[in-house]
Design a protein around this nucleic acid. Structure first.
Lengths: 107, 107
DNA sequence: TCTTATTATCGTAATATTGCAATATTAATT
DNA sequence: AATTAATATTGCAATATTACGATAATAAGA
């Protein structure tokens, strides 16, 4: 089918899977790292950096944006992307809670 | 296309995305939590627990197994699954390294 | 206003994922 | 060996994802 049976899962499990989904493509991992690394949030050359076409990068950015990880700023001429660090750390915490809680319970 | 352009990405980015991919479906998150929770690794009723068909669960288990997160034991009659906690914690560490490294660099 | 540069969207093709019924395999028990 | 129970595999259909060319939208500067 390809469609997930979302209704049988808990909110927490869905949240974890949605966070993981953002990181489940190497291009998105690279983009996140890149926009964090850039001083003054100078962006726009993600395309050159990653090696995928502009529409493809834009598509990946949308996934990242939909997850709430992107802050857009105008700095002079270009639309500048910036990582929403607070949200990013929220994601880390949710995953850590899952990891800790799960491994603590194991035999 | 649907196929990822793996050759343009770094080993680290691919590793992170592969770890995330395991967690990118709520059923797999639920399965991991469940097999960790079970005392004495009593398994086999994952199907009842999750609410998906046996072949579908088996398929998700394969993804988890291929990631190296599953240890199979024989305990009496049934094939018992157990979480490989060491590997699981390895995954956590890789993700945490990415999160820490990335958010530390951000503006 | 007309370029020009940047980013987003559309359309489309290829591949991947999810899900299950049917079937096969495996291992313990009779 | 035959039966039974548990798990894996196969085959298929539906949907999702990835990727890019073409095009549209947006905004700054001439």
């Amino acid at each position: 089918m390809g469609a997930s049976k979302v209704e049988i899962h808990t909110e927490t499990h869905i949240l974890i899977s949605e966070i993981a989904k953002v990181l489940s493509h190497p291009a998105r991992v690279a983009i996140l790292e890149y926009i964090a690394k850039q001083e003054n949030c100078i962006c726009g050359d993600i395309v050159d950096e990653i090696g995928l076409s502009q529409p493809t990068i834009s598509q990946h950015l949308q996934v990242i944006r939909n997850a709430g990880l992107l802050k857009g700023n105008f700095e002079g001429k270009r639309l500048c992307y910036c990582l929403d660090v607070a949200r990013f750390k929220e994601f880390q915490q949710v995953l850590n809670q899952f990891f800790n809680h799960t491994s603590a319970q194991c035999c």
